[in-house]
Simulated assay, not measured.
Amino acid sequence: MSTDWGACHFVMPMSLALQFIRITEASSALARLASRLSADEHFRLGALHKGEDRARFAVVRATLRDVLGRELGVPPDRVAFEADAQGRPRLAGGGPPDFNVSHSGHWGLLAYSSDVRVGVDIERLDALAEPRSSWDVCLHAEEQRALLMLSFTLSGHGPRADEIFHWVWSLKEAIFKALGTGLQDSLTALSVDVDAVARAVSAVEGKFDAAMPSATAGCPIPWRADDPALAEALRGLELRLLPAPPGYSAALAWLQQGKIG
């Protein structure tokens, strides 16, 4: 097991951009949003029965197309996607920018960059009613011990341990979405500094501004991996816990493109 936390730096790649997406359930906007989607996306939209699911899919996909269309200098409906060998979405042909999206409840989160591999996650803080039941399958033993200690020390003082769990989960989701190699079975071999997460949550509380999202406003979070192959795959990984909408957690991860096979 590694005894040192991974290095954290405050310098964010210049090309990395973030955007929070406010998702509404206004059915009147669906036709306008759907005009930007591909035939495959129209099919996926039609398969969704709940209005909130349709709105969420349409808003996030249309926003992604708008952003990438501006970057590529093409209309949104001309942006073409494909999946890489591991099933991770990318631009057709595999060129930049790299991108990643996440959505939960009434919010979505988008990141893109021309020179690093990105992963993002946003979660409702009440996504799991009983987070403790999931500890063994998604948390490192060290994370479990730290959360158990926080459940006592934070009682009545700051975020609850259940909320910290969701922030930790967002960070780990962002990591594996950036990696994109289907290594979710390695969740328990990867550990983030839970005490640093708890401090960061208090630091970013009340600082969310959807109009001016910035990774530099987030807090670097140390990490380490027990498995040597996973540690090598994640070498140079950078993590940020982001200011999030009230009731949500949000996280960003990035890797140098050259480290991805």
Score class of each variant (00 low, 15 high):
2 S>H: 10
3 T>C: 04
10 F>Q: 12
11 V>N: 11
12 M>K: 05
12 M>H: 08
13 P>D: 09
17 A>V: 04
23 I>K: 07
24 T>Q: 06
29 A>F: 13
32 R>N: 11
32 R>I: 01
34 A>G: 05
34 A>K: 10
34 A>S: 09
35 S>Q: 09
36 R>V: 03
41 E>T: 02
42 H>I: 00
45 L>W: 10
52 E>A: 09
58 A>H: 14
62 A>I: 06
66 D>M: 14
75 P>C: 14
81 F>R: 03
82 E>H: 07
83 A>R: 07
84 D>V: 02
85 A>W: 03
85 A>I: 00
91 L>M: 04
91 L>Q: 04
94 G>L: 03
104 S>A: 15
109 L>C: 05
110 L>R: 13
118 V>G: 13
120 V>G: 11
122 I>Q: 05
128 L>Q: 07
128 L>A: 06
130 E>P: 00
135 W>E: 03
141 A>C: 03
147 L>F: 05
147 L>V: 01
149 M>G: 10
153 T>P: 00
153 T>H: 04
157 H>Y: 12
158 G>R: 10
158 G>L: 04
160 R>E: 10
162 D>P: 02
166 H>R: 13
168 V>C: 15
177 K>A: 08
179 L>P: 01
182 G>S: 07
188 T>L: 08
189 A>K: 13
190 L>N: 12
195 D>H: 15
198 A>K: 05
199 R>G: 03
204 V>E: 02
205 E>C: 11
207 K>Q: 12
217 A>R: 15
219 C>W: 15
221 I>Y: 10
232 E>I: 03
234 L>S: 02
242 L>S: 09
246 P>H: 12
248 Y>D: 06
250 A>S: 10
255 L>I: 00
255 L>K: 05
258 G>S: 11
